[in-house]
């Protein structure tokens, strides 16, 4: 008996001997995209950075994510400390990144560099996870984190709140631009996980009524510098 792989490929090749008609397209489109050309039919992501930031803040508000804009990193540290006080966080796990290290020094609670000595049980007990990100998609209000930018896979999803620190320069207009950036940055060695986070974790499984914080963070904060 031949193996499953050989068999399945043989079936596919046999099946595709008869060609299927091209889909009946309603609009006049060119062939499928292989490039990262802008797609002017998707939701708008803004043509200027001001327009993008405007769209981003509207999207985040609708998603019930909190955007905190600050002029510089010193102000980011103050905003974070204020947040921790206001939410009475006791334990904050963070990703050891040069942009984050100076911020946690000012935190009025226990802090722990989670990617240095990873412990899932301990991480579960943390009130917040503090990470950077790869890029931010204005068009959809999505934040791209990766196992590299965000201290592994669990830090951005296991603690009860997630705080992302980013700079305005990381905001891109649309999803296509963000994917292209990830590809050009990492090439053939992508981080083992890349995740677009669009608002706090949610479910509508009970009577289609929206509840935040299903399994992931109940609260999502984006501290945007610049």
């Amino acid at each position: 008996m031949s193996d499953a792989r050989t068999d399945i490929f043989a079936r596919i090749r046999e099946a595709l001997k008869v060609k299927a008609p091209r889909p009946h397209l309603k609009a006049e489109t060119s062939s499928p995209k292989t490039s990262v050309a802008a797609k002017p039919w998707l939701p708008d992501g803004g043509e200027t950075i001001e327009a993008s930031l405007q769209i981003l803040s509207e999207q985040l508000a609708k998603l019930k994510a909190v955007l905190i804009r600050v002029p510089d990193h010193a102000a980011a540290a103050r905003a974070l400390a204020e947040l921790a006080t206001q939410k009475s966080w006791k334990k904050v796990a963070f990703h050891g990144h040069p942009m984050i290290q100076p911020l946690v020094a000012a935190l009025p609670c226990e802090v722990w560099e989670a990617d240095k000595s990873f412990d899932k049980q301990r991480l579960e007990g943390c009130d917040a996870g503090l990470t950077t990100c790869e890029s931010i998609v204005a068009q959809l209000g999505s934040i791209l984190v990766s196992s590299q930018s965000s201290g592994g896979r669990a830090l951005s999803v296991l603690p009860h709140a997630h705080v992302v620190i980013a700079e305005v320069a990381q905001v891109v207009p649309d999803l296509g631009a963000s994917l292209a950036l990830a590809k050009s940055r990492h090439g053939e060695s992508m981080p083992s996980m890349l995740s677009y986070i669009t608002g706090p974790s949610r479910t509508g499984d009970i009577e289609r009524i929206l509840v935040l914080g299903a399994h992931g963070p109940k609260e999502l904060f984006l501290i945007l510098v610049g």
Binding site: Q148, R153, P191
Partner: peptide, 16 residues
């Protein structure tokens, strides 16, 4: 809410 791309098991240098 989450659209995640996975490209393998944990890589060297990744903590989890």
């Amino acid at each position: 809410c989450y659209n995640t791309l996975y490209s393998g098991p944990r890589k060297p240098g990744e903590c989890d």
